[in-house]
Amino acid sequence: MKEQTVNESISLYKDTYSELYSALKWKVDKHSLMLIAAMYVTNAKEFNLKRFIDIADYIKDHVGMFSYLKSTQRFTIAATLDTTSEDPKESFHQFISIYDKLIENGFTRNAFSYIAAGTLLKVEPNRIDEIVQKTHEVYKGMRKNHFFLTNPGDYPLATILAQRELDSDIIVRNVEDYYQTLHKKGFYLGNDLQFLSHILAIETSHRPEEKADQCLMIRDMLKKANLKTKSAYYPYIGMLSFLENTIGEFESLVAINEDLNKDKLFKWNKDVNFMMSVLFLMNQFSAVGEAARTGLNISIETLIQAQQAAMTASMTAAAVASSNSSSSS
């Protein structure tokens, strides 16, 4: 698929979502369909409904009766496989192998472990064991620092952090430095702040004080634009801090957000629309590779992967909470 402008990406996103919604509205919640549509657009993968459903059915047919992948999560995993590999069915077995290794190394069997496994699909096979072990070390370090905050929802970002060329104890220390510095600047303590700390710790060339000031500036800009700045938005404030010219790009962010909020397909999903706005804005820079123009030592692709992992985890958590609420009522 050719490189697209933001407007072209948004148009394609709407078309893909409409096709997904028409086919799966009784099987998959709207937020998950929005995420799936965005995954195809940001990965520049042409969407084919028949192929997508075939992959989802293949997943359902090749897991145990009580697997989370018997549920609607198989559709987001199908999108992950379809957008990251040439042979999704073959990649599925690699994906399950990675998932099993995570479980063997102490992760629990839940939806977040599957998301974490998906973030490792592009890791060289000969490094999987090393990264999986390091992931668990990073997670244990986070849990030691914040026992009551750290939970399986943190698995996906732990796997991405573990891929950095740093020792696990240094990664954990960086996350904690960001957490404490951001709190001193006025960000509320909690899991959303920890998530923001994870995002910022992916890149190591900036000082926590510098990035915290930048995040504070972005939060103030969002307030002035009458956009919500609740703690659930913290990870996306972190994403915006990686832009070379945040102020210059801010108008584009507002325009994308307004476009989605006005569309009848999405107007009742303003929180997800904001996440998508940041995702589409960041995706403009995905062709930069190692992002030399921004001075980062990580690729924009890694950031987008981290953002998709964060979005998938938050939507999965919301779906689980909704399901638990329904079953108890």
Rank of each mutant, 00 (worst) to 15 (best):
M276K: 04
S71T: 13
H136D: 03
S11Y: 08
M65L: 12
M239L: 10
G106Y: 03
D177L: 15
N273S: 05
L279N: 08
N273C: 10
E176D: 15
K228G: 15
I256C: 04
K89P: 00
N257Q: 11
N126R: 14
K223M: 06
D263E: 05
P125K: 12
S327A: 11
A111N: 06
V138E: 11
T16L: 06
S286H: 06
Y139G: 05
S32P: 00
A212Y: 12
F147N: 07
I247Y: 14
G190Y: 11
T294Q: 13
I256V: 09
S11M: 05
P125R: 10
Q94L: 12
N145W: 13
K270L: 13
S91I: 05
F195Q: 14
Y21K: 11
M276D: 02
E210K: 12
N48S: 11
K211F: 04
D192M: 11
N283A: 04
T316A: 12
L161H: 09
H183I: 07
A317K: 11
E209D: 14
D220T: 14
L200G: 00
S168E: 14
K101C: 04
T119P: 03
K223L: 09
M142F: 15
M1C: 13
D169C: 03
N174M: 06
N324A: 15
N261R: 10
N273L: 06
